[in-house]
Design a protein around this nucleic acid. Sequence first.
DNA 1: ATAACAGGTATGATATATCATACCCATTAT
DNA 2: ATAATGGGTATGATATATCATACCTGTTAT
Lengths: 69, 69
Amino acid sequence: MKDKEYLILIGKNISRIRKEQKLTVKELGFRCDMEKTNLIPIEKGRINVTIGTLLKICRALDIELKDLL
Amino acid sequence: MKDKEYLILIGKNISRIRKEQKLTVKELGFRCDMEKTNLIPIEKGRINVTIGTLLKICRALDIELKDLL
DNA sequence: ATAACAGGTATGATATATCATACCCATTAT
DNA sequence: ATAATGGGTATGATATATCATACCTGTTAT
């Protein structure tokens, strides 16, 4: 799978799980201390996100990193 | 698990799998078009590596991203 | 109608991942 | 002895992830 496809998949998983938990992007941003201007592109798969950032998001959603892959 | 611990774990897995395949850092670098000055800190877990970089390494080692977590 | 909210984009600033080069220290081979 | 090799560090340059602010659009609530 190409990088971009992989990043899009990860982003979709974040977006899906966030919505399942009835969270807005803003609320997720508050939980993991991130800006929505960075979260939205991540959910869209436009950013080559780091492991550290993914871990922050995972903790905010109470999931494991492998749940995003 | 803390970010740093997670990054160290990923790095150890890269290093272990590379050695299992009898590859030097230089050879791995050649395969994934990366510098050893960047690969070594990644194997040490000192760098907050991106998904894109991990995917390059995974392709060079013929493994899946989840194999590193 | 309009105020509040949610997702989304644009942009400039800052932090840092990655590159490129040079160098050090052990170990191994000649 | 020394040349070659492998892991490792230091550093300056470049690319880009992330922050911070401002703004737009559509939807919902009052």
